[in-house]
């Protein structure tokens, strides 16, 4: 049993196999077959979702953009256009700029750590087991899989409240343990109230909540890789790290990219965690997120126009993030298609 048996002849490595070309006549045939059946199917499965999408996604989006150029208070039907004034205002506002930097930091750090950790865990429970016999995960893999998924089953707000109590300076578990084993400096140490620790603490809570889910996602992806490939690599003398880096990662690259983008979108929002852990924005606004600032601007300050502009900035940041992830993936060789056929 060798890798060659599963790919085309050894002269063409699997990376270079192009998807099969379709014959040009198919397009014409498709048009000819515009029967009632097809049109009704088209209406039900494309028309309705499209209508829903336009009503509930596209139109609010356009509205938000148009309101961002007005001085709408949110509580009266009257407003007048103010051009780019709202954007100038938020982009020269120290608090909002701080929030942008916080979200950018979250978007860089959180997805990276979550993906590294969940990939490591996924590798362990799928292919990291004994190095003889069939390729399998470490002993008790099923158990680890279930317990690491638990945090994700807890609603985000509960996660936030729970960790808020665990990090409580006086009666929290963390300081209790630390002082208990002799670190008396941690008596009443405010993890979420100290400017140096507040952001890392919040990141830790988010990471704790998501690692399990992405681990399961990656497990599914790794299980899709035929075990023979891993066996072949092993026979060729590849260790676990080499296998993970040179076999697993390239083969589940698309999954990693998708996970990275999802996590980035989550980190640019991060509202629930930030609001549960530090509703006032943390020490010196060190955990303030754009979404928190947006909420208070809209409903407490009554400046919906400005809040809409913040929303647009958030949206643009998300797009920018996705674009960066895509181009990094392409630049590092992600465009070369890998197939197992």
């Amino acid at each position: 049993m060798s890798a060659a048996a599963y790919g085309p002849p050894a002269s063409t490595p699997p990376e270079l196999v192009a998807p099969p070309r379709t014959e040009p006549s198919r397009a014409r045939r498709w048009r000819r077959n515009f029967t009632f059946d097809k049109i009704s199917l088209f209406l039900v499965f494309l028309g309705i979702p499209l209508a829903l999408y336009i009503t509930f996604v596209v139109s609010p989006l356009i509205q938000a953009v148009s309101y961002s150029f007005t001085d709408w208070s949110g509580f009266s039907p009257n407003f007048k256009p103010v051009g780019f004034e709202n954007y100038v205002k938020i982009l020269s506002d120290d608090t909002f700029l701080k929030a942008i930097r916080n979200n950018a930091l979250l978007a860089v750090v959180v997805p990276l750590i979550i993906i590294v950790l969940s990939l490591a865990l996924a590798t362990m429970v799928t292919v990291g087991g004994a190095s003889t016999g069939q390729v399998r995960g470490i002993r008790g893999a099923g158990f680890y899989r279930v317990i690491s998924f638990f945090p994700y089953a807890v609603p985000a707000i509960i996660t936030g409240i729970m960790w808020n109590l665990i990090f409580d300076p006086s009666s929290g578990l963390v300081n209790g343990i630390l002082t208990g084993i002799g670190f008396s400096n941690f008596k009443s140490f405010p993890w979420l109230g100290n400017i140096r620790t507040a952001m890392p603490t919040m990141m830790f809570v988010i990471i704790w909540g998501f690692v399990g889910f992405y681990m399961v996602l990656f497990i599914a992806a790794i299980k899709g890789i035929p075990a023979e490939i891993f066996e072949a690599a092993r026979i060729d003398g590849a260790g676990r790290l080499r296998t993970a880096w040179s076999i697993t990662l390239p083969l589940i690259r698309e999954n990693v990219q998708t996970a990275y983008i999802y996590l980035g979108i989550m980190a640019i929002d991060a509202f629930v965690y930030a609001q549960a852990l530090n509703p006032q924005g943390g020490p010196e606004n060190s955990t303030l997120t754009m979404s928190q600032e947006l909420l208070s601007t809209a409903f407490q300050k009554g400046e919906f126009g400005v809040a809409c502009a913040m929303g647009v900035v958030m949206g643009l940041m998300t797009l920018l993030f996705a674009a960066i992830v895509f181009s990094v993936n392409r630049a590092t060789g992600g465009k070369d298609r890998i197939t197992l056929a």
Binding site: P169, S170, W191
Partner: peptide, 12 residues
């Protein structure tokens, strides 16, 4: 002043 208040939920 009891330290740690900036990390303590206010009703706690």
């Amino acid at each position: 002043m009891k330290p740690g208040g900036s990390g303590t939920q206010f009703t706690a």
